[in-house]
Simulated scan of single mutants.
Amino acid sequence: MSNPPQKQDTGPATLGIHMKCCNVYIYARINAVKDAYVGWCPKCAKQVRINISKEGGSSSRFFEAN
């Protein structure tokens, strides 16, 4: 019996972001290309995009956006 193919781990699929524009918290989700986390403010529709770095990066799961 063979093992099923392993799924490549890309890390958590969301990041917590405090949108300072309207003082709300959102979860930015990983995009389809898996090169960035993207989210929008639910009040003013301002977009936030956090690119994924292949070398290093951050271990933080929460960020602030202006």
Rank of each mutant, 00 (worst) to 15 (best):
N3I: 09
F63K: 14
V38H: 08
G57A: 12
V38S: 01
G16A: 10
E55W: 10
C22H: 08
Y37E: 09
S59R: 12
N66Q: 12
C22E: 12
K43M: 14
G11M: 06
V38N: 08
N66D: 05
S60Q: 14
G56C: 06
A28Q: 13
G16W: 04
V33M: 02
T14D: 03
A13M: 13
Y25E: 06
S59E: 13
G56I: 01
G39A: 02
D35E: 08
K43Y: 02
E64P: 01
K43I: 11
R29Y: 03
R29I: 00
A13E: 12
L15F: 00
G56Y: 05
N51L: 09
K34M: 04
M1S: 13
Y37L: 08
T10D: 07
A36V: 01
P5G: 12
G57S: 10
G39P: 12
G56E: 14
K54S: 09
A65N: 13
A65E: 04
G57Y: 03
V24Y: 05
W40L: 12
N31D: 15
P42F: 03
S58T: 11
T14E: 03
K7A: 02
N51A: 14
Q8S: 09
I30V: 14
P42D: 11
M1F: 12
P5A: 14
R61H: 07
R29F: 00
P5F: 06
K54A: 10
C41D: 06
K34A: 11
D35W: 01
S59G: 12
N51V: 02
I17P: 01
Q47M: 11
Y37G: 01
Y27E: 12
V38R: 15
L15G: 04
Y27R: 15
V48Y: 03
I52Y: 05
T14V: 07
A45D: 13
Q8E: 13
A28M: 13
F63P: 09
Q8P: 06
S53K: 15
P12Y: 03
I30H: 05
Q6C: 04
P12L: 10
A28R: 15
N3W: 01
G11Q: 11
R49Q: 12
D9M: 02
C41V: 03
S2W: 09
N31G: 10
K54G: 13
I52S: 08
R61N: 13
D35T: 00
Y37A: 08
K34R: 14
G39Y: 00
F62A: 15
A36R: 13
W40I: 04
L15H: 07
N3L: 15
S58P: 03
N66F: 07
K20P: 04
A32V: 14
G57C: 11
S2D: 07
N66E: 07
S2P: 15
N23L: 00
R61G: 07
Y27T: 05
D9L: 00
F62G: 10
G56W: 06
C44N: 13
H18R: 11
D35K: 03
C41T: 04
S60R: 09
E64K: 14
S53H: 14
K34T: 11
T10M: 05
I50T: 06
P5W: 01
M1K: 15
Q47L: 04
D9C: 05
M19P: 05
T10R: 09
I52V: 13
D9A: 04
S53F: 10
D35F: 00
N3Y: 01
C41F: 05
P5V: 06
Q8M: 08
K34F: 01
Y27S: 12
P42V: 06
K34E: 09
V24S: 05
C44F: 05
A65M: 11
Y37H: 11
N66R: 10
